[in-house]
Simulated assay, not measured.
Amino acid sequence: MQRVEAFSDGVIAIIITIMVLELHAPEEPGLIHLLPLWPVFLAYVLSFAYVAVYWVNHHRLFHHAARITNALLWSNIALLFALSLVPFATAHLGEQEFTREATLLYMSIMLLPSFAYTWLQRVIRATGSQERAAREYHRRTIRKGVAATIVYVAGLPLTLVSPWLGLGCAAVVAVFWFLPRSRLDDLFAR
């Protein structure tokens, strides 16, 4: 189990590294030359938060894994593949300064890890720990994951209205997962 987690940690670290390498400092001196970079930086911040949420939840999820199965390995690889597309979508979004098309691509790519994580979680739920704490964890996080996926899906048509509405959906999902235990978690606990 530790090898799978270590491999996943390494891939996620590389994903974050690739994203930060897309931040190019201006050649001209002075802070004023940083201002045109705000779209690239904002796209990076949103994507960093997004990848961080997956890393934290991946760690928590693997706490409940009991054994390595073929399904666990492939669902984990699917998640890593989906996350590996985030640097491309992030760079495109920032360089295109949040155009409708770039935001649609970004939001579509944000959906892929959501689906892959759902598959991974279902595998671990079926083959992992069956203790009460594990069952409770899965119950809460599956509901929260479904809600997050719905918000991402809603972000696609909202992007057609305004790219900022679509990105707002992505930001809501990130904040939703960042929050410590909140009323939202209580809502999903029922």
Rank of each mutant, 00 (worst) to 15 (best):
S47G: 07
H92Y: 09
E27H: 09
L37H: 07
V123D: 00
F41Y: 09
L23Y: 15
F115W: 12
L83W: 06
W38Q: 12
N57E: 15
P113Q: 03
I77T: 13
H92K: 11
I68A: 07
T118L: 06
A25G: 10
V40E: 14
N70W: 12
P87L: 02
V123Q: 08
A78V: 07
L73N: 11
M107S: 07
H59K: 09
L80C: 11
A89W: 01
A66V: 05
F98N: 03
I77A: 13
Q96N: 14
R60Q: 14
T99C: 02
M107R: 03
S84F: 07
G94E: 06
L79Q: 13
R125M: 12
T90K: 07
M107V: 15
P87E: 11
T118E: 08
M110R: 14
A82V: 03
A102H: 00
L37P: 07
V86T: 09
R100H: 10
L42C: 12
R100E: 13
N70H: 10
W38S: 11
L83K: 14
L31T: 10
S108C: 10
S75L: 08
F62N: 05
T118Y: 08
S75T: 14
P26W: 04
L104Y: 04
A49V: 02
V53A: 13
P26L: 12
A116S: 13
I109R: 00
A66D: 08
L93K: 00
R122P: 03
L120G: 06
A126I: 03
I32S: 14
G94P: 07
E97C: 07
E27T: 09
F62S: 03
F88D: 01
A78H: 02
A78W: 00
V45Q: 02
F88I: 15
Q96E: 15
S47D: 06
F81M: 03
L83T: 03
F98K: 09
L46H: 01
E97R: 15
L37I: 06
L120T: 13
L112E: 12
L61Q: 03
